[in-house]
Amino acid sequence: MQEGTAQTASDIKAIQEKVEKESLFVRELMVEMGKVIVGQKYLVERLLIGILANGHILLEGVPGLAKTLSIKTLSDAIQTKFQRIQFTPDLLPADLIGTMIYNPQSGTFTTKKGPLFTNLILADEINRAPAKVQSALLEAMQERQVTIGENSFKLDDPFLVMATQNPIEQEGTYPLPEAQVDRFMLKLSITYPNKKEELEIIDRNAEVGFPEVKKVISPKDILKAREVVGQIYVDEKIKDYILNIVFATRNPEEYKIDLKDLIAYGASPRASIYLNLAAKAHAFLKGRGYVTPEDIKAIGMDVLRHRVIVTYEAEAEGITSEDIVKKVFDHIEVP
């Protein structure tokens, strides 16, 4: 395509203006969250990407990294409902979606909705519950509705699930199958705060109570922002770049990347879809009406790390999917 055609240039300018107007809340929201959460800018940004791109998040990190606090604070700041569900081996699907309760006085069944009927959900230690409970949640995530008895109920919008997995303890867990992990838009890996941040955490926790978070926007504003995110311009060159990255995870030899025998399965088409959507949301957070390769690189690892499955040989060599994704990004030419 010839660069800078008059039609696209004026359209993109209009989108840019909309983005600048609608993304004003981002800075204020980050400031408000920063009052409660020390560090974890990466986590907060990804939560916003999830909510703006209408995706869900799988998070891997050791205990005590402010996962619950982050999503709870976000929920307070954007005035949405929040539920934390602790996944345990004895949890049942009905404990999530709800059930029909018999009323002996009236002789009728009434619907008791489960904790899924909310906006933001923290599904804590999702791999502790058996497969049927995991599927119930993942189905609700995908369909955005649940069926109780004979009635189907739409889930609230915005609806974001942040599921956590503890990477340390694996005994007595039910690891999520690859097909179900693929339904999460992003898989995040968070680590400990640095010394300076941890010192601030000590000081803040020594004070009585957490500071109040100001309500920055409403769920309606989030839906409006989501519409603008959908309009953000993605050039054909960027789409080609996305396709090259995803296809390189499937056929690395075609792209002359030395990853032979290290990849069992490359990224699925969901990877291409989510790279595009998450990059748009990232551009929105940066106040841009168009996507650049920077956006793709910024969210690339989070979109791809759970979608590239390494071989046994790679595992034996200590090579992770993150190493492979990094190598792919280093080799694919940026447009």
Partner: peptide, 11 residues
């Protein structure tokens, strides 16, 4: 150059 390539800015 990036703005011209990715944001359709006409130079």
């Amino acid at each position: 150059c990036d703005r011209a390539k990715f944001a359709g800015e006409r130079l």
